[in-house]
Simulated assay, not measured.
Amino acid sequence: MRLRITIGDEHFQATLDESAASRDLAALLPLTVRMSDHGGVEKTGRLPSPLSLDGQPAGADPAVGDVGYYAPGNDLVLYYGDQSYYDGIVVLGRLRDDAAERIAAMDGSITVQLQR
């Protein structure tokens, strides 16, 4: 499934995988999430409800450009830097093109609008 991400005047695309967690995220759309920098490698923001962890491993080692979910915090995550393996991370899909670089250049908190 394709995901449209809008931050201010900028538009990005992502592709979600076929997991239960991704389907749960899609069911929440359209959605607005307030996100902030975390560790200089990601933007994170709380979702209104938890996503399913059915079929997911205990954790993941997301790559730059991944869209993820951090289950312990119920956070949507946009990875723009290198994050190592961590329990509770679920990779939901991938940002397309240069989205990770453009998101990395955004200082501070951002408001993210997500749509199909």
Score class of each variant (00 low, 15 high):
S84A: 15
P62N: 04
M35F: 11
E42R: 03
Y79G: 02
L95H: 03
A21M: 10
Q83T: 07
K43A: 09
D24F: 10
L53W: 09
E18P: 01
A100E: 04
Y70S: 08
G93Y: 11
G68F: 01
M35K: 01
A58R: 09
A71P: 08
D82K: 13
E18H: 14
E42G: 05
D75T: 07
R34K: 14
G8F: 07
Q13G: 14
G39A: 05
T32F: 06
L3E: 04
D107T: 14
E10G: 03
R4H: 13
S84N: 10
T111P: 13
G93Q: 04
H11I: 06
L76I: 10
D75Y: 12
H11P: 00
D98W: 11
D24K: 02
R94C: 01
S49N: 02
L31Y: 12
F12Q: 04
I103M: 09
L78E: 12
R96C: 13
T15D: 05
R23N: 08
V90T: 11
D61F: 07
D97C: 10
E10T: 14
I5A: 01
V112R: 02
T15L: 15
L28W: 02
A99F: 02
Y69I: 01
I89S: 02
V77W: 00
Y86N: 13
M35E: 02
E101L: 11
R94Y: 07
R23T: 12
L78S: 12
A104F: 05
G40H: 03
A105G: 08
I7N: 03
D75S: 11
S52W: 06
N74S: 11
D82A: 15
D54G: 09
L25Q: 00
L51T: 06
A100G: 05
G65L: 02
P72Q: 02
T44W: 10
Y85A: 05
V64G: 04
R2P: 15
A20R: 07
D61I: 00
Q56F: 03
V90M: 03
L28V: 06
G39E: 01
G40E: 06
G81M: 11
D66Q: 05
V90G: 10
Y86M: 15
Y85T: 03
F12S: 05
S36W: 05
V77I: 07
L95F: 04
L47V: 12
V41A: 08
L114K: 13
R34T: 12
S19L: 04
D9F: 08
G73Q: 05
G55Y: 08
L31W: 11
P62D: 06
G45E: 01
R116Y: 12
Y69E: 03
E101G: 09
H38R: 01
A100Q: 04
L31G: 14
I110Y: 06
R102Y: 09
V64M: 04
V67L: 04
S84V: 06
L53V: 15
D87Q: 10
L16C: 05
S52Q: 11
G81T: 03
R102W: 10
D24M: 04
Q13W: 09
F12H: 08
V77E: 07
P30Y: 13
